[in-house]
Simulated assay, not measured.
Amino acid sequence: MRVAIAEDSVILRDGLVSLLTRRGFEVAVAVGDGDALVRAITSSAAADELPDVVVADVRMPPTHTDEGLRAVLALRDAHPTLPVLLFSQYVETRYAARLLAGDPRGVGYLLKDRVADVRDFVEALTRVADGQTVLDPEVVAQLMRASARPAALDSLTPREGEVLDLMAQGRSNGAIAETLFLSYGAVEKNVAQIFTKLGLEQDPADHRRVLAVLRYLDGR
């Protein structure tokens, strides 16, 4: 089985190459960002040598937000039956939902922790290559919770969703600005828009940031 890997961490990328090679896989591509992945697969397609499955991290350079996701979505647009397995450090339901919005066959989404269980990871990779859909149990649980969330959350822009996601991870506005490469003022504007869209009016008795995160996590 020919595998293409996109992971910006050199240690993890080399570890995946070693792990898969020892188990009889052929690693045809091993790159560190989404653009390089698309270029490599495009070249392979031109030579009629598409990989059997693509493994990619969701967050890669330059912004470490959704480059891996966007890369595999572009590849699936060009090659709808190309199997892809995404993995992420955290459960990011909106990214999983975007990945599954089209044909879910040959699609996988795992947490990085699952890679540590070699047998489960190899099994998941094989199942995705065979056209099956493989989702991390925690991803499934959070997708189910997300489906019950109010329409107000659906009104958030992708950027506001990213800001709220980082708020839910306990990040300060300063940390969010650094992570998303935004100005502090831009983050404050996004947070204010989140409060408005979620109907969280300023009240001395309430902590709107906590309420917004609870709304996000619990769908209430």
Score class of each variant (00 low, 15 high):
Val128Cys: 11
Val128Asn: 14
Ala129Val: 06
Ala129Arg: 12
Asp130Pro: 00
Gly131Leu: 09
Gly131Cys: 05
Gly131Ile: 05
Gly131Ser: 09
Thr133Met: 01
Leu135Val: 00
Leu135Asp: 01
Asp136Gly: 12
Pro137Gly: 12
Pro137Thr: 12
Val139Gln: 12
Val139Arg: 14
Val140Leu: 09
Ala141Arg: 14
Ala141Asn: 11
Ala141Lys: 14
Gln142Trp: 03
Gln142Asn: 09
Gln142Lys: 14
Arg145Ala: 10
Arg145Gly: 08
Arg145Ser: 11
Ala146Arg: 15
Ser147Trp: 13
Ser147Arg: 15
Ser147Asn: 15
Arg149Ala: 12
Arg149Val: 04
Pro150Asp: 12
Ala151Gly: 03
Ala152Glu: 01
Ala152Tyr: 00
Ala152Cys: 00
Leu153His: 07
Leu153Met: 07
Ser155Cys: 12
Ser155Asn: 13
Leu156Val: 02
Leu156Phe: 03
Thr157Arg: 12
Pro158Phe: 01
Arg159Leu: 01
Arg159Ile: 00
Arg159Phe: 00
Glu160Ile: 02
Glu160Ala: 07
Gly161His: 04
Glu162Ser: 14
Glu162Gly: 07
Val163His: 05
Val163Trp: 03
Val163Ile: 03
Val163Asp: 04
Leu164Tyr: 01
Leu164Ala: 03
Met167Gly: 13
Met167Thr: 09
Ala168Leu: 04
Ala168Gly: 14
Gln169Trp: 04
Gln169Glu: 11
Arg171Pro: 01
Arg171Gly: 01
Arg171Ala: 08
Ser172Trp: 12
Ala175Ser: 14
Ile176Thr: 02
Glu178Pro: 04
Glu178Ser: 15
Glu178Ala: 15
Leu180Pro: 02
Leu180Gln: 06
Leu180Arg: 06
Phe181Asn: 14
Phe181Val: 08
Ser183His: 13
Tyr184Glu: 13
Val187Asn: 09
Val187Asp: 05
Glu188Trp: 02
Glu188Met: 12
Lys189Pro: 00
Val191Ser: 06
Ala192Val: 02
Ala192Arg: 11
Gln193Cys: 08
Ile194Thr: 11
Ile194Leu: 07
Phe195Lys: 15
Phe195Glu: 15
Thr196Arg: 15
Thr196Glu: 13
Gly199Trp: 12
